[in-house]
Amino acid sequence: MRISRRIALALPAAALALAVGAANAQDTMKLKIGTEGAYPPFNNLTADGTLEGFDVDIARALCEEMKADCEFVTQDWDGIIPALQAGKFDAIIASMSITEDRKKEVDFTDKYYNTPPAIVAPKDSDIKGVTKEDLAGKTIGAQGSTTHSTYAEQTFADSDVKLYPTAEEYKLDIISGRLDAVIDDVIVLEEFLKSDEGACCKQIGTVTPVESIYGPGIGIAIRKGEDALREKLNAAITAIRANGKYKEVNDKYFSFDAYGD
């Protein structure tokens, strides 16, 4: 009689534990993170299909901080905002600058890094600086639909600005001598110069970012009106800055604090 009573008492407790476990599983935040996968060292898809880079590791750190179950989705840069709006993923963590034009289409978190653009040219180039006058008459490459391409088109009015779908494609053209210079994030270009292919070229200098073009830094884009998600991501950015996780990721890639001022 005692045995059967114990079993009877245990059954409701077991049922309650299962119910609590199911509720907790349902409460776990599930997020799909969109990234390009073609912008090393920030995000890159390796030959075996592995995603790596600063953006990717920061995303993982934020997901861990939020106790969220995150999945990555790769998307071509030109279609990344439409894909977010269509629900293909919930957030873009892909080195996207916070700009006024983009804020008309998406909402942004606070910045999670801020590094300047730079100009790179072939080693035998006669380009001396990064001004409009320095680059007059030159052919300049940039990845299209980026703040760098916007800056190049608005600033280098006396140059021929050529736009490319990815950074890898403009790199091929400067290596082969079809470009006089390229503009991109300083970290992306420094990584290129360290590679075997980058032996062709040298850095001319960095460009002072124009805030009306570059905005206050790089943020995470989310769909309009998703304020609760933005607040959670902002809190997670603040937390990983404070607990040392951001520095751990940062130091894996850079010798300075990419967060900026």
Results as ranks from 00 to 15, higher is better:
residue 155 T to R: 15
residue 142 A to Y: 05
residue 120 V to D: 03
residue 244 G to R: 09
residue 120 V to I: 07
residue 178 R to D: 14
residue 219 G to R: 03
residue 201 C to T: 00
residue 131 T to V: 01
residue 135 L to P: 12
residue 144 G to S: 15
residue 123 K to S: 14
residue 189 L to Q: 14
residue 162 K to G: 02
residue 159 S to W: 13
residue 141 G to C: 06
residue 198 G to D: 01
residue 167 A to W: 06
residue 144 G to C: 10
residue 199 A to F: 05
residue 225 G to H: 09
residue 231 E to C: 00
residue 244 G to T: 08
residue 167 A to H: 01
residue 244 G to E: 12
residue 251 D to V: 11
residue 165 P to A: 04
residue 143 Q to F: 05
residue 190 E to P: 00
residue 133 E to R: 15
residue 207 V to M: 09
residue 114 N to K: 08
residue 215 G to A: 12
residue 167 A to Q: 11
residue 120 V to N: 05
residue 116 P to V: 09
residue 244 G to I: 14
residue 193 L to F: 05
residue 190 E to C: 03
residue 149 S to C: 08
residue 183 I to M: 09
residue 233 L to Y: 06
residue 163 L to N: 15
residue 180 D to S: 06
residue 167 A to G: 10
residue 174 I to Q: 10
residue 239 A to T: 14
residue 188 V to N: 07
residue 236 A to F: 04
residue 148 H to T: 15
residue 228 A to G: 04
residue 152 A to W: 00
residue 162 K to C: 03
residue 179 L to N: 03
residue 177 G to L: 01
residue 142 A to G: 08
residue 230 R to S: 11
residue 225 G to T: 11
residue 141 G to M: 08
residue 178 R to P: 05
residue 189 L to W: 07
residue 247 K to R: 11
residue 123 K to D: 13
residue 164 Y to M: 09
residue 215 G to N: 12
residue 120 V to F: 01
residue 240 I to M: 08
residue 158 D to K: 14
residue 119 I to T: 07
residue 135 L to R: 09
residue 170 Y to H: 10
residue 147 T to F: 00
residue 163 L to Q: 12
residue 162 K to I: 13
residue 183 I to E: 11
residue 213 I to A: 03
residue 169 E to N: 10
residue 165 P to Q: 04
residue 227 D to C: 03
residue 174 I to C: 06
residue 170 Y to Q: 12
residue 157 A to Y: 11
residue 139 T to F: 06
residue 241 R to Q: 14
residue 237 I to S: 04
